[in-house]
Simulated assay, not measured.
Amino acid sequence: MNPLALLLLALSMSTDAFAVAIGKGASLKNPRFFEALRMGLIFGSIEAITPLIGWLIGNVAASYVDAWGHWIAFAVLVALGLHMLYEGLSPSREEIEKPSRHSFLKIALTAFGTSIDAMAVGVGLAFVEVSIFLAAGLIGLATTVMVTLGVMLGRVVGSLFGQKAEIIGGLTLIAVGAWILSGNL
Rank of each mutant, 00 (worst) to 15 (best):
Met39Cys: 11
Val123Tyr: 09
Gly69Gln: 10
Lys106Thr: 15
Ile72Arg: 03
Glu129Gln: 15
Gly162Ala: 13
Met1Ala: 05
Ala48Tyr: 03
Lys29Glu: 14
His70Arg: 10
Lys164Phe: 11
Gly177Asn: 03
His102Lys: 09
Val128Thr: 13
Met84Gly: 03
Glu129Ser: 15
Pro91Gln: 01
Ser100Gly: 08
Ile180Phe: 07
Ser103Ile: 09
Met84Trp: 01
Val78Asp: 08
Leu160Glu: 11
Val147Ser: 12
Glu35Met: 12
Ala10Met: 10
Val60Gln: 09
Phe34Glu: 10
Met152Ile: 15
Ser12Met: 09
Thr50Gln: 01
Leu37Tyr: 00
Leu41Ser: 11
Thr110Met: 15
Ala73Gln: 11
Arg32Thr: 14
Leu149Gln: 03
Ala79Val: 14
Ala126Ile: 06
Ile72Val: 15
Thr110Asp: 02
Ala26Arg: 11
Val176Tyr: 08
Gly113Asn: 07
Val147Gly: 12
Leu77Trp: 05
Leu77Val: 07
Pro91Asn: 01
Pro99Cys: 10
His83Pro: 00
Pro91Arg: 04
Glu94Cys: 00
Ile72Ala: 11
Gly137Ser: 11
Pro51Ala: 05
Tyr86Met: 09
Lys24His: 06
Ala79Trp: 08
Phe133Trp: 12
Asp16Ala: 07
Gly81Asp: 06
Thr144Phe: 15
Ala67Val: 07
Leu28Ser: 06
Val145Ile: 15
